[in-house]
Computed example of a mutant assay.
Amino acid sequence: MTQKQALTISERAAERVKEIMASRDAGYLRVGVKKGGCAGMEYVMDYVAEPDPLDEVVKDRDVTIVIDATSLLFLLGCEIDWEVTPISSRFVFRNPNETDACGCGESVTLVPAQPA
């Protein structure tokens, strides 16, 4: 039985991450969630040289993503995408664990993933 990846990244997002990582000489994309915003939680992204010992490591589309251990259950099944509109460009998280979002889109309400 093959284990499903914790999260995935779209082709558009992967290309953008590779561009940014090359300019910063970083090896890994770190993603997670933190408390904040009017809906309770915010997605966070950073570029790091090495994963922490407890990080979950995911490889998708030639990008190595690390998820901090405290965020893993909130991000299971999530897809990171790169969205370009006439007035903005940004990373977006398509997350099945998201139950609500604030009006401005900066914060979300998340529940931990439940075992299948």
Rank of each mutant, 00 (worst) to 15 (best):
T70N: 13
D55G: 04
I9P: 04
A113T: 07
S89D: 10
G36S: 05
P51R: 09
V66H: 04
Y28I: 00
V31K: 05
L75M: 13
R12I: 02
L72A: 11
Y47P: 04
D25F: 01
I9F: 04
G27L: 07
V48Q: 06
V57D: 01
D68V: 03
T70G: 09
A13M: 04
T109K: 12
K34S: 10
P112S: 05
C78R: 12
W82C: 07
V44R: 05
F74S: 03
A69N: 01
T8Q: 03
I9A: 00
S23M: 12
M41E: 06
V58P: 01
F93G: 12
V57C: 11
D46A: 12
E56N: 02
L29P: 09
E98C: 14
T99K: 12
C104W: 15
A101L: 11
E79Q: 11
D60Q: 06
G40S: 06
S23H: 15
A14M: 08
I80V: 12
K59T: 07
M45G: 09
V108R: 11
M45I: 14
F91Q: 13
V63E: 04
I67G: 01
M21P: 00
M45W: 15
E15H: 13
A22C: 09
G77R: 03
A101M: 09
G32C: 00
N97W: 07
V44G: 03
V66G: 01
K59N: 08
G27A: 10
P96Y: 01
N95V: 05
Q114T: 10
